[in-house]
């Protein structure tokens, strides 16, 4: 490219470029190894018979899965977690949809304050939200309930739902809704038959993502849930005791659940883009 480079210098340059490119690629792989090592490790050692997980591996076993299968506390925690994450997903996505539509269609005074109110919760450290929620819920006499966790998680996850649905609305032609009004549809009917169907993939994506976030959240759940432990709270309490390989087994199941949820959420999110480009 450069004007006055000599042939051999150019060759040197190319070789350096080649080396640089490949060491960068190798570096990216190292980062991925670091990010996914703990996940892979947990899965492998959930099938390892040694009490203390180290290498070399001992024999293959399902012992830890049998232990947790027989443990009523684990069942209880999974039941609680499912109730919490399903309810949270429904509430947060509903709130997120309302907000996204408002932001898409309306301009009004104090709109930036409105948006700040909606979008700020995820930027506040969870431990602070946990303390604030604990104090507030005991003040209004609602602490230690499963639905206190649900309410807190909805506050936390609604912004994610709002963002996903808002991005989808960005791709909707404004005239689509006007066309429906012109053809005699009321605003409610246009919403039901035009806007809502258009947003469906994003709504599904938001449902799965908010469920995943709620399923994994432990700080607020730990402070607010009282005796109704969710899975992450149970893990937190087991881990405080000692190293127990059954955590790897529970952890593997948790990974499986939340990774599936996040991947489904992403697939719906990307599906949307592809369909629009067609």
């Amino acid at each position: 490219m450069r004007n006055e480079t000599k042939p051999h210098a150019q060759k040197n340059n190319l070789r350096n470029q080649f080396l640089l490119d490949w060491s960068l690629r190798f570096y990216v792989i190292l980062i991925f190894v670091f990010v996914f090592a703990p996940i892979v490790f947990s899965v492998i050692f959930s099938f390892n018979s040694a009490r203390f997980p180290t290498i070399p591996l001992e024999s293959f076993t399902l012992k830890w899965y049998e232990t947790i299968w027989a443990d009523p506390d684990v069942w209880e925690a999974f039941r609680n977690s499912i109730i919490v994450s399903v309810s949270t997903a429904l509430i947060a996505t509903t709130l997120g949809f309302c907000t996204a539509y408002t932001d898409y269609r309306y301009r009004f005074r104090f709109k930036s304050a409105y948006l700040a109110l909606v979008l700020l919760p995820p930027t506040i450290p969870l431990i602070i939200m946990a303390l604030a929620m604990l104090a507030w819920f005991s003040k209004i006499g609602a602490s230690g309930q499963l639905w206190s966790v649900i309410i807190a998680h909805s506050v936390l996850t609604a912004p994610f739902a709002m963002a996903i649905i808002r991005l989808r609305l960005n791709q909707m032609n404004k005239d689509l809704e006007s066309a429906a009004w012109n053809l005699g549809a009321s605003e409610w009917r246009a919403m039901r038959e035009v806007v809502f169907p258009f947003c469906k993939p994003a709504i599904l994506s938001a449902l799965f993502l908010t469920a995943a976030v709620s399923f994994d959240e432990f700080a607020i759940a730990w402070f607010v849930s009282g005796l109704n432990k969710t899975v992450p709270v149970l893990i937190l309490e087991i881990v405080q005791g000692n190293i127990d390989p059954q955590v790897n087994a529970i952890g593997t199941i948790v990974f499986l659940v939340s990774m599936t949820l996040v991947m489904i959420a992403q697939v719906f999110f990307f599906l949307r883009q592809n369909r629009t480009s067609n």
Partner: peptide, 23 residues
């Protein structure tokens, strides 16, 4: 994916990997 995936369990995993007699 990992950003939305059980941070707590990943830390427990590191705890075991980094231990004195760990992996």
């Amino acid at each position: 994916i990992p950003f939305f995936t059980s941070y707590l369990v990943r830390i427990f995993s590191w705890y075991v990997i980094l231990a004195e007699s760990g992996a």
